[in-house]
């Protein structure tokens, strides 16, 4: 336990170690630690931002979904209306067509009836004339009596 040169040797060693530590050990390690701290902090804030973004995106998606639903509902509504309209109008058309056809048929029938009557009338007139001729045994001057015969025919 003698105090001797070891004291000075130890002090010198101490000084050299401290110098080395200050220069070559401390700065790179603390720099790396600070860099990591920054990295972690950045990562955390990025995660926060991402979750916020996600929330916003979800909100937006929900909004769009809602909008799309509304649009679709409107479209369907419109289509339904249009379909009803088409059905209505085609019903109308069909009715009109039918009525037209009926009208036409009616007109034809009427025409045929008139024709048939006319033909019948003529026939009847001829028959009547023939009958009358037979009765009178004389020929009737067709020309002279045509007026009368026409009158007769019109009466039938």
């Amino acid at each position: 336990m003698n105090i001797n040169l070891t004291l000075i040797g130890q002090s010198i060693a101490f000084a050299i170690f401290v110098w080395f530590c200050v220069k070559y050990v401390w700065p790179p390690i603390t720099a790396a630690m600070q860099a990591r701290q920054k990295k972690i902090a950045d990562g955390l804030s990025a995660a926060d931002r991402a979750s916020l973004d996600l929330e916003l995106a979800q909100e937006k998606a929900a909004q769009q979904m809602h909008q799309a639903k509304e649009d679709a509902a409107a479209l369907i509504d419109q289509a339904n209306k249009r379909a009803a309209q088409i059905v209505e109008s085609s019903k109308d058309d069909a009715r009109k067509e039918g009525e037209k056809l009926i009208e036409q048929a009616r007109a034809e029938i009427q025409q045929e009836r008139v024709q048939a009557r006319d033909a019948l009338r003529t026939e009847v007139a001829l028959l009547a004339i023939a009958g009358a001729e037979k009765i009178l045994e004389t020929s009737v001057d067709a020309k002279a009596h045509s007026e009368m015969l026409d009158k007769l025919a019109a009466q039938l």
Binding site: N2, N4, L5, G9
Partner: peptide, 18 residues
Amino acid sequence: ASDMGFMAIHVDTLGWSI
């Protein structure tokens, strides 16, 4: 060792500490 006085070095102390 004690007679050497101040002009001496503890080789073990210095060696192990270094």
